[in-house]
């Protein structure tokens, strides 16, 4: 793997670390499996790209992208909480609707940003090569957000969110308004994913209406890889294991694609992802079974 593609892999891995944090918030913290992210990732990219192209400041465009993603998450929460639509189904509805909305936002299937200003433009004067600048910028943003989310999950509000997912009845008995936490959690999660989309569009120079497909699986893969490596209860460790999981996942995929003897091509990416996620789910399961069998055998002798 060339240095250039290695740095590129790290950069995408970091950006998808935000997706992984978002997925962790819904799937693990709130116990609300949310597939909206496939749509909100694209939405973040679409809003940022469309606004930048029309001459709006990239930072304002990025903030609007986050708000758009958060709104999409709220729609999913609303469908589920107000009308009792199953969370998975509610999120698939939003995601499907977003496909059209994103096309409308961009006005065409893709928007190029190559010559446009981006959130990186103010730092270009530093004289760093673009390759490193992008990586450092993304790393700083992702680490700061990681710290902020870890802090948030340890606040009274954030802990209430965790209780909402872990034991809603207990949460309620302790005065936590669980609907409010679900709205907030889905908004936060999809806002982060949209931010990832907006950053991706600006660092890679384009937004595309299909770029979000499979985002959820990649996010889940990162969460699961992270979880299987670090078994901690500390929020800081958990959030950073999402980011590291995302980096490792990207590296694994790029190694798999680069290893000629494996014969994979870019179009095999989805199969590789499915295999990785599958492995990450199957291995701990088998380990648990073996442990149980061993314990049972020991018990039998005693």
């Amino acid at each position: 793997m060339s240095l250039f593609s290695f740095l590129g892999t790290l950069e995408i891995g970091l950006i998808f670390g935000l997706v992984a944090i978002g997925v962790y918030l819904t799937f693990r913290v709130l116990d609300f499996p949310d597939l909206t992210v496939d749509g909100s990732f694209t939405m973040g990219a679409a809003i940022a790209a469309a606004m930048i192209v029309s001459g709006i400041n990239p930072y304002i465009a990025t903030v609007c992208a986050v708000i758009g993603g958060a709104a999409a998450g709220m729609v999913t929460a609303w469908l589920n909480l107000r009308f009792n639509i199953l969370h998975l189904l509610a999120s698939i509805l939003t995601m499907t609707a977003l496909y059209t909305i994103n096309l409308r936002i961009m006005g065409k299937p893709n928007v190029a940003l190559i010559m446009e200003p981006t959130v990186l433009s103010p730092f270009e004067a530093l004289g760093l090569s673009n390759m490193y600048l992008k990586l450092i910028f993304v790393a700083v943003v992702v680490v700061m957000i990681g710290l902020a989310i870890a802090y948030f999950l340890n606040t009274q509000y954030g802990m209430g969110m965790r209780a909402t997912g872990a034991n809603p009845r207990m949460a309620q008995a302790n005065g936590i308004v669980i609907k409010q936490k679900i709205y907030a959690g889905l908004a936060l999660s999809n806002g982060l994913v949209a931010l990832a989309g907006a950053l991706f569009a600006q660092t890679n120079g384009f937004a595309d209406s299909t770029m979000g497909i499979g985002t959820i699986v990649v996010g889940l893969a990162a969460v699961i890889v992270g979880e299987s490596l670090f078994g901690s209860r500390s929020m800081l460790v958990i959030i950073f294991s999402c980011i590291i999981g995302s980096l490792l996942y990207r590296l694994a995929v790029s190694v798999a694609l680069n290893a000629d003897f494996l014969g994979f091509t870019t179009s095999d990416l989805n199969l590789i992802t499915a295999l990785l996620v599958g492995l990450a789910l199957i291995v701990p399961h088998i380990r648990r079974e073996q442990k149980a069998r061993k314990a049972a055998a020991l018990g039998g002798e005693a």
Partner: peptide, 26 residues
Amino acid sequence: TCGNMTVEENMALAYGRGKRGGLLPA
């Protein structure tokens, strides 16, 4: 109680009962 949270976290949740959950560490 929440099984996947620590003893002190559970107690902190109960300590916040009837208060508005703010953005200070619990």
